[in-house]
């Protein structure tokens, strides 16, 4: 409770609020607003409390120039600043896998990754697995095999499967179980999820 209050107070600290500022200028114009003031990457110096820090994120092949609070997680920035809401917040503590994204081809939890730590890396979210307007092969495989019930865990499952298959193109069932063991499904659709991964391995070829 106490902590939340403090957070709320910080969100609305003097003058223009950070959230308000970002909302007013929007992501697009923010790029112009920060040009010149921004070094290419995070610099090796302390930032003062309340300051936003410039950050370049490469998400699904696109570069984004942003200003972030050091404490913002990649999950928060993807959803709240880049509006890539395919990546889901579940537990926010590394225990469910709903927030899984690929960082340089490896699945990671975006809830336990600071946005600032992701700069210089290739980030892939579930949106990045589309082939234009078409579903990508892993997504298609989850549809074909009914690899979900409520669907909340599905984006994380799909990204984890993509990460597994980029590394191990023909996984056996043991490798699938291990590779997918960082993603929980409350609905217990595991049997279908594992089948979907097997199908995905075929469709990806």
């Amino acid at each position: 409770m106490e902590k939340e209050k403090i957070d709320a107070a910080q969100e609305s600290s003097p003058g223009i609020t950070r959230r308000g500022f970002l909302q007013t200028v929007g992501i697009g114009t923010l790029e112009i607003a920060v040009v010149g003031a921004v070094a290419p990457a995070v610099q090796a110096e302390t930032r003062q409390r309340g300051n936003l820090v410039p950050l370049t994120l490469k998400v699904n092949g696109q570069r984004h120039e942003l200003h972030v609070e050091p404490r913002w997680t990649l999950l928060y920035v993807l959803r709240e600043k880049l509006e890539l809401t395919g990546t889901k917040p579940g537990c926010d503590r590394g225990e469910c896998g709903a927030c899984t994204v690929l960082i340089d081809d490896r699945p990671r939890y975006s809830c336990l990754t600071l946005a600032l730590e992701a700069d210089g890396h290739e980030i892939t979210t579930v949106e990045g697995l589309m082939h234009g307007e078409q579903l990508g092969p892993v997504q298609e495989a989850f549809v074909q095999e009914d690899g979900f019930q409520c669907g909340f865990c599905t984006p994380g499952q799909v990204v984890a499967a993509e990460g597994l298959l980029r590394h191990t193109a023909n996984p056996d069932i043991g490798e699938i179980r291990t590779g997918m063991s960082g993603n929980l499904c409350r609905c217990g659709a595991y049997g279908h999820i594992f089948k979907a991964v097997q199908r995905a391995a075929i469709l990806r070829k």
């Binding site: 902590k3 957070d7 995070v42 090796a44 302390t46 820090v53 050091p70 404490r71 600071l114 600032l116």
Partner: peptide, 15 residues
């Protein structure tokens, strides 16, 4: 959300 902190990423062990 995580409470406020500042952040730095030095390029040398000494720093």
């Amino acid at each position: 959300m995580i409470p406020w902190f500042t952040y730095s990423r030095p390029n040398s062990l000494k720093d």
